[in-house]
Write a protein that binds this DNA or RNA. Structure first.
Lengths: 146, 146
DNA sequence: GTCTCTGCAAAGGGTTTGCAACGCA
DNA sequence: TGCGTTGCAAACCCTTTGCAGAGAC
């Protein structure tokens, strides 16, 4: 397993999914998608809103919240509730994968979901990512329930 | 790797850690620890508060919040921010480990953190836990930063 | 033209804080 | 007795909602 840096964000994929979900491709939404994809890290709605405003884009905070929720619904963003109560979002490809988050610069690369064996191998040294933390949780049925 | 059901909660370990952290072992804190450990699943502060009140324990919601934060700090609880904005807490042993959460009954068992190889083996069939979902995220330094 | 989206402001809801009384150590 | 803790209520802050006007298709 190797880390695959995301290429140029494919906005068209996102716009297509929006249309498929009966959502409109509006100016504010395009501005949000562009800034969101450009940042390439987890951002809070407020952060994204500030970013847009400082780029002279007149937009409401509520619109950022609503758009991020829509993007999450169509699979173009992943949400990560933070400890402080805020929710951070990451622009990402519309497919199942994991993330490798750099704790220094915040950059996020996609980690394709192959097999657990591949995961183990990568930990042996192939992964060009110095792991310092991992978060792992299992969900399923315990012995009594299954 | 096998699932190890937590034995009788070791309250004394918790009280010892509290003392070590210059925190006092008070009546309200004992009540919270007892109820918290008894529940053996992720609970929100409000849920725990309601549980205590219905058990005729007079206690303030703010105290529950403050105590859960203290327990998290000393390692006796793990916090999991929820999608809705709430934070759920789980009473757990004071050592590094993972969790196996039953999606039906909510029961949580500790999964000792051995090696990744052990993790892979367990997935091959030793784990008496039917996995239906997993959540995995890496934190560290990317190639550029390290 | 229709139906969704937008910005603004107010409401909502979880969490934190200020403070005087309380109670471990 | 000293200092951390508690309960209550108000303050805080992130997020959602209501609504009238604007805009996509």
């Amino acid at each position: 397993m190797t880390l695959r840096a995301r290429g140029r964000p494919e906005f068209d994929d996102v716009y297509r999914e929006l249309t498929r979900a009966s959502c409109r491709v509006t100016g504010p939404r395009k501005a949000i998608v562009t800034a969101f994809a450009h940042l390439r890290r987890y951002v809070t709605p407020k952060e994204l809103h500030d970013h847009l405003r400082s780029a002279k884009v007149r937009i409401g905070l509520a619109t950022v919240y609503r758009t991020l929720e829509v993007l999450r619904r169509i699979g173009a963003a992943s949400a990560a509730p933070q400890a402080h109560g805020e929710t951070a979002y990451l622009f990402c490809a519309i497919s199942h994968h994991h993330h490798a988050v750099c704790v220094r610069c915040g950059r996020v690369d996609d980690v394709p979901c192959r097999s657990v064996a591949g995961f183990a191998r990568s930990l042996a040294g192939n992964l060009r990512f110095r792991l310092t933390q991992h978060k792992l949780e299992f969900f399923g049925l315990c012995a009594r329930c299954s």
